[in-house]
Design a protein around this nucleic acid. Structure first.
Lengths: 358, 358
DNA sequence: GTCACATGATCAAGCGTTTTAGCAAACTTT
DNA sequence: AAAGTTTGCTAAAACGCTTGATCATGTGAC
C-alpha cells in the first residue's frame, strides 16, 4: 500500500533521500512542519543560537527532520534579512594569461574563506566594458567589497563604479588618495636578489633590466643599487643592461653581457634568465661556474626545472591576495602613504655558487 | 548654508552622488518614493517589462530617481523571489598549481557570463573537507549547477553532496552512469602530434611516454599508434620509452633515445621536451635538424620560448570550461556513453622540419 | 494560594524584490 | 449618454529566512 504510493508519481515523504537532484529545494518551513515546530524554532536550532531556549528533545526532532529532508539553508534569504552579504568580489585582468593570477585568487580565496566569505570572481581580460559589467554584477550581489587585481604590478586608475563599494587594489596602485592597495616590495626583492650573489662572494654583478617601464623596473634596479651600496660597492651604470623581458631578450643580451667581465648576473625576470641560459650555453659557458645567475618572479615551470635550477626571488602573489582580503575586511591596517608592500622571499637553487677566491 | 549642512554630519539629500561609499544601499522603495510612484512601477521600469503600460513621463521620472540615488537592484532579493539563482559554481582542485586551471576558469566564466550567470569559485587543493564545505556553500547559494574540475585529466569519484545539484565533471570523469563530463580528446591529440612529424616525412618516430598511469598516457599512445597505422607504418614497441613526465625525465631519456636511430620524437608533454632539448644539446645535436621534436600541452611559457620554439598540441582548457558550462545549462547535449571529448588543436612552431630525403 | 520567575516555544514583522489581479480615469464606440 | 476598451498605475502576496516581543506553562518562594 505504502509501496504502491511510492511507485506511483508522488514520492512518499518518508523516503526523499534519493530523489533530491533538481527537486525544489527543501525550505525551513518544510522542516518545521516535518518536525512539528515553528519555523522560528528551526531557525534557532540551525544557527544554534545560545540565547535560545530549546529542549534537547525538540532540538533532536529538528535535526532529524533536517537530516531526513536534506535541508540546506538558502543563503540568499539569509543575507537578505541579515543585510550583509558574505561575498567578496575579485576582478582580475588576466586570469588566464599567467599562473600568477591563479595564486592571487588562491590567496584571496583562502583568506576570504577563513572569515566566512565566498569569492565572486570575474575576469575581464582588460576589457573596460566587461569590467564595468563585472563590477556592476558584484555590486548587485552586495559584495562586502571588491579586490581589483592586475597580473603584473602597475599603476592603474580606479573605475568609477568601484567606488560604490569598499575596494582594495591588488598588485596595482592608484595615485588617488584613499585608494588602498597592496603590492609586492620590488625594492626589497631587488635587494634580496642581489644579496644572493653578494653573499656568494660576487662583487662585479651585472643587472639585465627590462626595457619597458614599470614599477618593477625601477624598484628592482633600486634594490640592486641599495644592496651594492650596503656592501660598499659603487654602483656602475655600465653594468646595467636593458632588454625586452622575455627569453629572446635574455638570449640577445648575452653578447654584451660577456664583454662586461662580470662573474654574476641578476636578471629582471626568470624568462630572461632562461634565454640567457641558452646564450651562455652557446658560448660553452657553464652556470654557475662561469657565470652565476639569479632571476626574479619564481615562475615555477621555468625556474625550478632549468638546468641548473635557477635561484630567484618569489613574487608573493598568494600573499597579495590574502593581504588584499585582510585589508578589505579591515584586519590589516593600511599603512599611511602608499600601498602596503609585501615581502618577496628568495628561493635559492643551483645557479649560484661561491666565487672561487681570485 | 547648503555647504554648511554638507560639511556637518548629515549629507544633504540633494547631493548623494559622492557620498555613496559604504552607505546603506539604495532600495527600490526609496526610488519609488523619490519618483512619487509605487515600487511596482519602479520594478516594471527597471526590468522594462514590455507588457507593462507605463507612460513615458513616469518612466523618465523613475529613471531620473534611479540616477540621482545611484540605485542598484539587490540580486539576492531578486533571486529569492524568482526562485532560481544566477550562479554557477566551479570547484577546482588546483587553481594555483598550474596555469591550466586558470584557462578552465576563464572559459567557464566567459560562457557563463554569456548566459547571464556569475561564477562562484572554490579552490580545494585536493582537500576533501574543504571540498565538502565549498560544495555546501554553493548549494546554499542555490547555484544553478556545479562544475567539478581537476587540473589534469583523470578519473575521479563524485562527492556525495555534488549530487544534490546539477553538475558536470570538467577535465575528469567518473564511471558512474549519468555523471556528465567533458575531457580533452587525448587520442586525437596523440594522433595530431604524430601527424605533425609524419607529414614532414619522418617515418621512424619515437614516443617518450609518461611512467605514471593516466588517461593521457593511454590516449596519447593510442593516438600515436593510430597515426602510424594510418600511414602504413607498423607500430614498434621498441620506439616507445617511458620516463617521469617532467624536465628531468626528458633529459634522462636522451641516452636511450639516441640509440633508437629515430629522426623524430614525440614527447608526452612539453616539460619532457624541454628536458630533452637540454639532453640533445649536451650531445651537440641540433633541433630540428638532427632531431625533430613535438611536445604536448602547449604550456606557453615553455613551448613558445624554447629555442627553437616547440611544436606541440594544445590542451583545450578554455574550451573545457566553456563546454562544461554549456553542458550544465543543457545547451550542448551530452553524448551517450562516456564524456564529451574536446578537440586538441596542434600548434606548429620550429622544432620540426621536413626530413631531407635519404 | 498567590506571585515571581525560568523555561520552551511561537507570532509576526520585515529584508528587497517580482508579479498578478484589479482599480480609476480617459478614450472609444454605439 | 451608456457601455466597452485602453491606458496607467497600485495593492498586496509571496520568496525563505531571522529575531525581538510575546505567550503559555511549570517551578519554587512566600
Amino acid at each position: 500500500m505504502d509501496s504502491q504510493e511510492n511507485s506511483s508519481g508522488t514520492p512518499s515523504a518518508a523516503a526523499p533521500l534519493q530523489q533530491s537532484r533538481r527537486a525544489q529545494p527543501v525550505t525551513l518551513r518544510q522542516v518545521a512542519e516535518a518536525a512539528g515546530v515553528s519555523t522560528a524554532t528551526v531557525s534557532l536550532v540551525v544557527n544554534n543560537k545560545k540565547a535560545a531556549r530549546i529542549s534537547d528533545e525538540t532540538r533532536k526532532r529538528v535535526h532529524d527532520a533536517i537530516q531526513d529532508l536534506g535541508y540546506r539553508p538558502n543563503a540568499m534569504a539569509q543575507t537578505l534579512v541579515s543585510g550583509s552579504s558574505r561575498f567578496i568580489g575579485l576582478v582580475a585582468d588576466a586570469i588566464a594569461t599567467t599562473p600568477f593570477a591563479g595564486q592571487i585568487i588562491h590567496g584571496a580565496q583562502d583568506e576570504a574563506w577563513k572569515h566566512g566569505y565566498a569569492l565572486l570572481i570575474a575576469n575581464t581580460e582588460g576589457n573596460r566594458e566587461l569590467e564595468r559589467d563585472a563590477i556592476a554584477m558584484m555590486l548587485e550581489y552586495k559584495v562586502r567589497g571588491i579586490l581589483y587585481s592586475t597580473w603584473f604590478h602597475r599603476a592603474t586608475d580606479v573605475p568609477d563604479s568601484l567606488r560604490e563599494s569598499d575596494f582594495v587594489l591588488v598588485n596595482c596602485f592608484a595615485e588617488e588618495p584613499g585608494a588602498r592597495a597592496v603590492v609586492p616590495d620590488e625594492v626589497q626583492g631587488g635587494r634580496s636578489a642581489t644579496e644572493i650573489l653578494l653573499k656568494h662572494g660576487h662583487r662585479r654583478i651585472a643587472f639585465i633590466n627590462a626595457t619597458i617601464p614599470a614599477p618593477a623596473k625601477d624598484g628592482r634596479l633600486q634594490g640592486y643599487r641599495e644592496a651594492l651600496e650596503a656592501e660598499g660597492i659603487p654602483f656602475d651604470d655600465g653594468l646595467v643592461l636593458e632588454a625586452y623581458p622575455d627569453q629572446e631578450g635574455g638570449f640577445g643580451a648575452t653578447e654584451v653581457l660577456l664583454k662586461l667581465g662580470v662573474t654574476a648576473v641578476y636578471c629582471y625576470n626568470d624568462r630572461m634568465a632562461m634565454g640567457l641560459y641558452d646564450g651562455l650555453r652557446e658560448h660553452g659557458l657553464s652556470i654557475p661556474d662561469d657565470m652565476a645567475v639569479v632571476g626574479f618572479d619564481n615562475q615555477e615551470v621555468i625556474a625550478a626545472h632549468l638546468r641548473p635550477p635557477l635561484s630567484t626571488v618569489s613574487l608573493p602573489h598568494y600573499e597579495l591576495g590574502a593581504a588584499g582580503v585582510r585589508m578589505l575586511l579591515g584586519l590589516d591596517e593600511a599603512q599611511d602613504g602608499g600601498p602596503d608592500k609585501i615581502y618577496c622571499p628568495t628561493v635559492e637553487r643551483d645557479s649560484v655558487r661561491a666565487l672561487a677566491p681570485a
